[in-house]
Computed example of a mutant assay.
Amino acid sequence: MTDLDRLLQFAARSRLPEGFGHLGDDGRVRPDRGQETWIVARMTHVFGLAQLSGRDGWDGLVRHGVEALVAGPLHDRTRGGWYAAATADGVPADDGKAAYPHAFVVLAAATATATGAPGGRELLDEALDVWQTRFWDDTEGLAVEEWDAGWSRLSDYRGANANMHGVEASLAAADALGDDDPRAARLRSQALRATERLVHGWARAWHWQLPEHFTAAWEPLPEYNREQPAHPFRPYGVTVGHLFEWARLALHLRAVIPEPPSWLLEDAVGLFTAAASRGWAVDGYDGFPYTLDWADRPVVRQRMHWVLCEAVAAAETLATVTGEATYGVLARRWRAHGEARFADPATGSWHHELTPEGAVAADTWEGQPDAYHLAQLLLLTGRPVRGSVAAASR
């Protein structure tokens, strides 16, 4: 079985002087690739979870991550916010500021705050201010997607993926701030509003085929990226792993809001059931394909490690919440599949992408970039359901 401590040792190899980098299949960091905010933030979060779970020796890497997000090349200290990526020379690699990486900065800052890391609370305050003033659209009850670097032009695209991680980050930030901070209740309310629109609204109306892409007026774009179906963040069609991930997040949300509506559990079950029944072995090979079309036919048949991690985590969470043995059976079955197919004995992590037949692939994901999905799965197993993985880890 995959060992969390060995996974963390693998993740620690991502350390670079000014942050964390991309890890290859050989277990070595790739400094030539520069840095990406989502990787730096996720790794900071993972090391914070390790510390919160009672493991010694991870506080230094949490501090390093906080310092990277505060003083490193990804942070625009003049205009505010974070670039998505920086080159190996420390130059911003893009001229936009997107909700997806900003959600992970909030998540990393929340977990760092929970550990008591120096500068963590200040980072969280700044990241939340950017999220609230630049990305959260209170009229829509959802987050917008992407600005230019100077915050003057807003993209017409709207996406479910960034909102999903915004829900995750908002719940983690609320837990880190504590109930005495008035922002905590507001963040949980915003998480509920976003979940209600995307899950209880579109996912339910579309028979659990959650549309991922939208216009500026929040009209679904079902044909978006048909010509680039294997996009790592905006693929065409139904993203199976996101159905599992939303199911789990609905249950985290249900655990922390007063008088939670019954639909949170009902919709979590609906999403999970759809993903499990339509996704597993749909092409005749064990495992979940990356994406399906609107007739439940596989589009990108490659197996992504994160999809399986989220499937197991959702099953574990539903088993805890409902007490129904069926979910536990599925969690164990799928976890065994992951250990047999994805686990890499050379690194202690999991291969990020496989062909349907089980060969290592790199069409969408090269190497083993980060430890976020797998570490969260290992830390969620056997723990109570809280608003965030950090709160459960404590």
Rank of each mutant, 00 (worst) to 15 (best):
A217Q: 11
W306H: 00
A149F: 10
R335E: 07
D179I: 06
L187T: 04
T355A: 08
L142G: 00
Q9D: 14
A343V: 14
E227L: 06
G116D: 07
T364E: 09
P289I: 02
P384K: 09
G279H: 04
W306C: 02
V269D: 03
L49P: 03
W206H: 15
D26E: 10
E339H: 09
L308F: 06
L154D: 03
V40F: 01
S349R: 02
H102A: 08
G72S: 05
R42A: 12
L52D: 11
G81F: 12
G150V: 12
A315D: 02
T37G: 00
T239R: 12
R15V: 13
E339Y: 10
S14K: 06
L187G: 01
A112T: 02
T273W: 02
D175K: 01
R297D: 07
D175P: 00
V46L: 07
A203C: 15
G323T: 05
A343N: 14
A217W: 09
V389M: 13
R28A: 14
P261V: 01
S189N: 09
H242F: 06
A185N: 03
E122V: 11
R303M: 03
E219G: 03
E122F: 11
E310Y: 01
L210W: 11
A274H: 11
L124F: 04
D370M: 11
R394C: 13
V91L: 11
D293E: 01
T44D: 05
T291K: 00
L124N: 10
H213F: 07
Q368V: 13
Y236V: 07
N161Q: 08
Y83N: 11
D94Y: 04
G150T: 13
D179P: 01
A98G: 14
G178A: 08
E219K: 09
A127L: 04
E146D: 14
F47Y: 04
V105Q: 06
G96D: 14
H213G: 08
L379N: 07
A390N: 05
R204C: 15
Q302K: 12
A390W: 05
A84P: 06
T195S: 15
T317Y: 04
V29P: 02
L52P: 02
L7I: 12
V167Q: 01
A103N: 05
E366K: 15
